[in-house]
Amino acid sequence: MTDFEPAPLPEQKVRARPGFGRILLASLGIILVVALGGAGAWVLTHQQRVSDQFVVWQYEPTATIAAYAERSTMTGEGRFLFYASRPSIESTESFDTHCASDIEDVGILGCYVHGDRKIFLFNVTDDRLDGLEEVVAAHEMLHAAWDRMSDTDHAAISPLLEAEASARAGDPAFVKTMEYYAKAEPGERLNELHSIVGTEFADISPELESHYATFFGERQALVQLHLTSDAVFTERQVAISNIVDQTTTLKSSIDADYISYNSGYDSLNADITSFNLQADEGGYFTQREFDDRREELVIRQADLDTLYTSIAERVTQYDGLVAQLDDLNAEVTELNQSINIRPRTEGDS
């Protein structure tokens, strides 16, 4: 077998097509410039978004902060705005330096500081208020969202918010809340409505529901957290109101019957004295007359004793209700302190 070795091929010269490389590079250059030019325009018109992005990249949420975002069902956009506001959980002393209020009987649990675009959250540690912190975090995040909305967006959504407010004009709690904001934050009605409606109202217009879907994946779950935590207070308020009504009614009946009892016994004692004198002097001509008069006095005494027993029973009931009221008031005091409402001291006006 003969080994076969192929003959070498002649050397080939590669000939570039005139101008092809230059045209391609030039085209790429144009595309690059156009792309950068578009990004530059976007950056110029979305400077806050770019600034927020840098903040989010640098912000490291704690496990608790991340859990707030998760449990409140924040979407990617909601979480972005939340983290862009660098939320921090503060103790009473440090929190009050950022979010203090001089209005009596108001608990401040969170605030969005517009100048710094930062969220501060009060550290609620009472297990009975489970879910409250998540609602507050969501409320403040919506302030961040409102802060970044355009005037056109505000104008479009404002009538929808006012419609929801009008529908709840008969709700005393809502009316009181809005009265507080009118006093504490004049000019921020729509801003506050935007946060309240989104986190507390279950039934809202489809247009608003669509708007809030940008920020929450399951808004109804968030509203349920609000309802559950709010019920801790409303249930005790209802219980206290019922007890106060019962004690007021009891006290009124006790006082009235005690007056009747005392005057009745005064009259009875006077009649007994008169009966005894008449009996001693032989004033009754027959045994039947004596017995009838005596029986009348005995019946009156028995009736008064029955009335006294009733009074005593109601006093015991009253004292028991007062003890329940004291316990409830103690609970409310604890709950108030846990939501940053401190008891008034001597000298407070």
Rank of each mutant, 00 (worst) to 15 (best):
D102G: 12
L321R: 06
Q220D: 08
D151K: 08
G19L: 08
V135A: 05
L24E: 02
Q301G: 07
T248G: 06
L160A: 13
V50P: 01
E185G: 00
T64P: 00
T92N: 05
E296L: 04
S72T: 05
T62F: 07
L190T: 06
D327I: 03
R288A: 15
V50S: 04
A84V: 04
A256I: 09
I157M: 02
F275M: 04
A16I: 08
A63S: 14
D348V: 01
P186R: 11
F54M: 10
A182H: 04
E133V: 11
E77K: 14
E289P: 09
E140V: 04
G198R: 13
L277K: 11
Y180P: 05
Y284F: 10
Q246Y: 09
E334C: 00
Q224G: 09
S274L: 02
D171T: 02
M1V: 09
I341M: 15
P159M: 00
L28C: 15
R79N: 10
R314L: 01
G198S: 09
G110M: 06
F174A: 11
T97E: 12
E5Y: 13
V232N: 07
V33T: 15
D105P: 01
Y112P: 13
N191Q: 15
R17I: 13
E346F: 14
L9M: 13
D102I: 08
D266K: 11
A84H: 02
L277R: 07
T333A: 15
S241L: 12
S241R: 15
Q58E: 04
S349M: 08
R344D: 06
L160G: 02
L277A: 08
Q301E: 10
D96A: 11
Y112F: 14
